[in-house]
């Protein structure tokens, strides 16, 4: 992999650590370390739960070894901590998940019936969507959520300008293209309401007020 690959706009490449980041990680103040541990905690807890689940039981020994393995794994396979805002609105998270499940169910059956329907296959398009968030994490979640809803796949990501390029299925008219674009922005707004930072939230409210 060439060094320039870090600038590649792919989702997969956006988690690659740069040399300067890992070098500056050596000298940080204690409060910063505490902040980083706090941000890593969900990941650590997730790994411990996974360890326990794989063993099939939650004994104290399992939890202890799970923590040791989780710390070792996050040390050896180091990733820069995702830029999480630290805000979590439980109610809007539930709203997002409920909408997400409904979207996936409805859209999966729509695509399934389109596949079985003998009529000709509808036209596709490639659309660009300008997101309002500045957070990589929200952008990634939006891309994943839209990829799992049948009818849209992320073709390309412009990380600098926060533009997602989608290949959308069954967009035969300009109105359908606009509807798909609006859909991406609605999903983004839901994610920002659930976990986004205050800045992102303000930006969402601003654009919604002018609409």
């Amino acid at each position: 992999m060439s060094p320039q690959d870090n600038q590649s706009t792919s989702v997969a490449a956006s988690t690659t650590p740069t040399a300067s980041e890992s070098a500056s990680a050596r000298k940080v103040s204690r409060t910063e370390v505490r902040g980083r541990v706090w941000k890593q905690l969900p990941l650590l807890l997730g790994l411990v739960v996974l360890w326990g689940v794989l063993w099939g039981q939650f004994s104290w020994l399992n939890i202890l070894t799970g923590f040791l393995v989780a710390i070792a794994v996050t040390r050896v396979l180091y990733l820069p901590p995702a830029d999480i805002s630290g805000r979590l609105n439980l109610w809007y998270s539930l709203v997002f998940i409920a909408h997400f499940i409904a979207d996936v169910t409805v859209a999966s059956f729509t695509v399934a019936f389109q596949a079985l329907n003998p009529r000709p296959i509808p036209t596709s398009s490639v659309i660009a969507v300008q997101l309002r968030t500045r957070s990589d994490f929200v952008m990634t979640l939006d891309a994943i959520a839209m990829s799992l809803v049948p009818g849209s796949i992320v073709v390309e990501v412009d990380r600098e300008r926060a533009i997602l390029y989608f290949h959308t299925f069954d967009t035969t008219t300009a109105a359908a293209v606009e509807a798909m674009r609006a859909k991406v922005l609605v999903v983004e707004a839901r994610i920002v309401r659930a976990i986004g930072s205050k800045d992102d939230l303000a930006r969402i409210y601003e654009t919604e007020a002018t609409r």
């Binding site: 398009s125 490639v126 660009a128 300009a174």
Partner: peptide, 11 residues
């Protein structure tokens, strides 16, 4: 040719 619009190509 199968695409209705291609905004990535425009970009």
């Amino acid at each position: 040719r199968s695409l209705l619009v291609d905004e990535l190509e425009q970009a």
